[in-house]
Design a binder for these strands. Structure first.
Length: 206
DNA sequence: GTACAGATTGAG
DNA sequence: TCAATCTGTACT
């Protein structure tokens, strides 16, 4: 399954001259027309979700709750609306002591061995690095993603792309229920299509 | 046209 | 616990 293969890969973003990246540590699969929780349930196609029908490797990004972006990677064939929601990243800043964001100039994180004690400054607020990308809305904010990235091809883009990272062992991958889709009914809501890396501090929820 | 719910987050 | 506030859908 493509979904699990994304775990451990590096999502790389170019912001001007700066390049920031994060390891994908949490994903959710949405498998198209049959999936009641998918935006493309019943082959539904609207202006919002039409990027989902592109060939795998494109980006599908949309807004929820009027304020948060959700970053998805399309995984299906053309016309086959399947995608993977990226729920959490482990930012490279966690290992490097440095960070840059579109929201603020680069700031050095406080040196500390424990990730939970490292901070970066965003809009004059200190944010725990471990709180930076542990949620689908948060990671989009950190990477400065918005509607303009919709339908962008990850293989062609000069501002965002994927790189291979450390391979994640099967034993390290946990499967669980997807989040926030109770409206889809028990059958679909209970599908274990959320995958995350065991013991990773950046996963949004246990 | 109006009403409403949602793949969330952060403040109080 | 709740407000923020965009988008598509299902109504009138």
């Amino acid at each position: 399954m493509v979904t699990k293969d994304l775990l451990g890969k590096l999502l790389v973003r170019r912001l001007g001259k700066k390049i920031i990246s994060g390891k994908i540590v949490e994903v959710e699969a949405y498998i198209g027309p049959k999936d009641r929780a998918s935006h493309a349930f019943g082959n539904k196609k609207t202006k919002r979700n039409e990027a989902e029908y592109l060939i795998g490797g494109h980006i599908y990004i949309y807004l929820v709750y009027g304020m948060h972006w959700q970053f998805n990677i399309v995984t299906g064939k053309e016309g086959s609306p399947e995608c993977v929601l990226i729920r959490a990243l482990e930012p490279a800043v966690a290992n490097r002591h440095e960070c840059s964001t579109r929201l603020d100039s680069p700031v050095k994180a406080r040196r500390a061995n424990d990730t939970n004690k490292k901070f970066v400054k965003i809009r004059d607020k200190l944010v725990k690095i471990s709180e930076l990308t542990n949620g689908p809305g948060k990671l989009c904010k950190w990477l400065g993603l918005n509607k303009s990235f919709n339908a962008e091809d990850l293989a062609e883009s000069q501002r965002i792309w994927l790189e291979d990272g450390a391979k994640i062992k099967k034993e390290q991958i946990i499967a669980s229920k997807r989040i926030g889709i109770d409206y889809a009914g028990k059958y679909w809501a209970n599908k274990k299509w959320r995958f995350y890396i065991k013991d990773n501090k950046f996963v949004s929820k246990l």
